[in-house]
Design a protein around this nucleic acid. Structure first.
Lengths: 208, 208
DNA sequence: GTTAGCATGTAAGGAGTTACATGATTTT
DNA sequence: AAAATCATGTAACTCCTTACATGCTAAC
């Protein structure tokens, strides 16, 4: 089975950024940490191996400035260390689309949600909606379970623990409100697109 | 050098919870996920190995109900599967204190902050303050770098990316405000403790 | 001419997850 | 007596980090 496994957040993020423009590793990392800096940070130790792996899978190509002058034969050919610009291949674009189209836990759990969301403009409208709803219900589950745990342990009143739980609850509630707004907007847009039916927002695979 | 390394969040969390009361693994996990459920969740696959490791280090003891009746010789002695209650040893308490006393990156980075905070009532007042301030400045660095990255890339106006960045910024700003309030309270308490000087909040090692 | 930042990489390892495997106890 | 939940455990694996190692290029 040719089941492409082992994605990780990095793969998606790299493919997504390279889709916007070809780049070299160092720059990629900066853009990465600017994009997702609020949620997570990646180190070179994970980025470069990831690039290598994507290269091996044929999802990106590297463009090394292969000192393409025939004259200077003396200088060490391979040792010229310079920027290596990576570019998405056709298969890479396909893979990116695949990753952006699957609305599953990977797309709404903590690790993956941010990255998936960041590239929502390349995601089909219906998938966007399902991801947003998936995340919302995930968060609501969490609220539920923590709230009931809080209710059960009313006696235990460690101030700091309580403070932490409250702050956590409020943060998650805030994110749910944010999601509600986004979902509302998405639905309105879908409605609008359905009535004035010309084309959908994004490329769709099946007319259904 | 007897440098005890390889802590991880779990070790602290387990020691902290066992300090409150002896417990068995299953219950421990539930309490763990109730306590930190908003931030992270642990699975048995990490909890049990961790307990084993703590046991090996002598930080906890296990109390298996070693069917302590001499009569029933026939039934399989070792196969009796039942609750194993873990309890903190003296060294475990010491280790917990050590972990709670070091105010470093481990205590204010994303992974560790929540757990450290959860057990703040067992933490020295001055350490609490330094951890809160450490986290705040960490978050402010993050704000700074993401804000400047945003300012640089004004042209790129992908709606979703922007939306994500904004939500991220607001979340972090919110946490900073929360920290500000906590720091204010801590300082007020310290002030109060300093003027009416009887004893400090928490056990202190050196009078300094 | 030396520091600081740009740029690429590797080896070793940590921390935790998933999936599996099993058994005991309570509820229905 | 079946189903749910309580309870303990292991093996393989994943993703990512830390620390190291190297070299180029611009600024001071």
């Amino acid at each position: 089975m040719a089941g492409k496994k082992g994605a990780g957040v990095l793969e998606l993020a790299v493919l997504g950024l390279l889709h916007e423009a070809p780049m070299h590793g160092y720059e990629l990392r900066k853009r990465l940490n600017a994009l997702l800096g609020m949620f997570r940070a990646f180190s070179y130790g994970s980025l470069y191996p990831c690039l290598k792996q994507l290269l091996a899978k044929g999802l990106i190509t590297e463009d090394r400035p292969e000192d393409r002058d025939g004259t200077t034969a003396a200088l060490p050919l391979q040792s010229r260390r310079s920027k290596i610009v990576y570019k998405l291949t056709a298969e890479g674009k396909e893979r990116l689309q695949d990753l952006l189209t699957e609305a599953g836990p990977a797309s709404w759990e903590d690790e993956g949600f941010g990255v998936h969301f960041a590239f929502f403009s390349h995601t089909r409208a219906d998938v966007r909606l399902r991801i947003l709803e998936g995340r919302r219900s995930r968060l609501e589950e969490r609220l539920e379970s923590v709230r009931s745990a809080l209710a059960r342990t009313r006696e235990r009143v460690d101030t700091y623990t309580l403070e932490l739980q409250n702050h956590g609850l409020e943060s998650v509630e805030r994110e749910v409100r944010w999601l509600n707004e986004l979902i509302g907007r998405e639905r309105a847009e879908q409605e609008q697109a359905r009535t004035s039916n010309t084309t959908q927002d994004m490329p769709r695979e099946t007319g259904r």
